[in-house]
Amino acid sequence: MGPMQVPAHFEYERATSVDHALALLAKWGSEARVVAGGHSLIPMMKLRLARPEALVDINDLEELAYVRLDGDVLAVGAMTRHADLLASPLVGEHYPIFHDAERVIADPVVRNRGTVGGSLCQADPSEDLSAAFAAVDAAAVVRGPDGVRRVPVREFHTGPYETVVAPGELLVEVVVPVRPGGGSAYEKVERRVGDWAVAAAGAAVWLAGDTIADAGIGLTAVGAAHFHAPAAEEFLRGSAATDSVLVEAGRIAAERCEPVADQRGPADYKKHLAGELTVRALRRAVARARGVA
């Protein structure tokens, strides 16, 4: 065991409402960081990969912890814990992709604390929810001093560990329209239970009879820009939902990935997985859209 690791000194502020959080962020400016579950940020602070002067704790913001249907839009509050997304019957009914993904994110105790908003804002290139929300074409709702703006998740991440959320802003919600005829699924390969992905793929399809009316594909850990595979989606739209079509979509998705070799595997293996997992996720998504899985 190494020596005791604690973060460097910082000031701690507890937000009691979204408005209060925004005021605290404004007060501290770019030296402040929001802390949600802290399961990415606190480890980074221990390692001095992050050294904020102030932390604004948003854990008391119950107003941001919900999963609900607003009309035909599934809305997930930023402070929803992984465990609550996994436990939500609404999510299971409309977008089982999130239950597939949550079952393989970390472990149950970490999932009790880590949040949906923290996952998206951490923007780790291996984050599972980033790929899942990209697959279903969700939108992030961001609040700042000048009001609310809505950013497609497919444009939310601007690079590794970087998002469109500016200092002083807060991600408050993620929204996904619920459309009929849909199915979705998530497939991940990890080295051991609870580990980050070697590679993972999420898929959503909407069928009109045997034709794929619309499709969404998200990828993580494989160097896909914005966790997204637009060319494969384009190929699927209007195609018949046959296995050979799904396989070709996987090939197209993999072709455009640029994974980097690391301790989780060599680049060619990850590229192979990107294709294979896309196909598997598509197969399950189609089966679910047909009501047979």
Binding site: P43, N112, R113
Partner: peptide, 20 residues
């Protein structure tokens, strides 16, 4: 692992001030 507000959490990754 301890319970925070009735839920198990890993207390090496929670700040004491968060439990205030």
């Amino acid at each position: 692992v301890v319970w925070l507000d009735g839920t198990p959490v890993k207390s090496c990754t929670v700040l004491a001030v968060m439990a205030d």
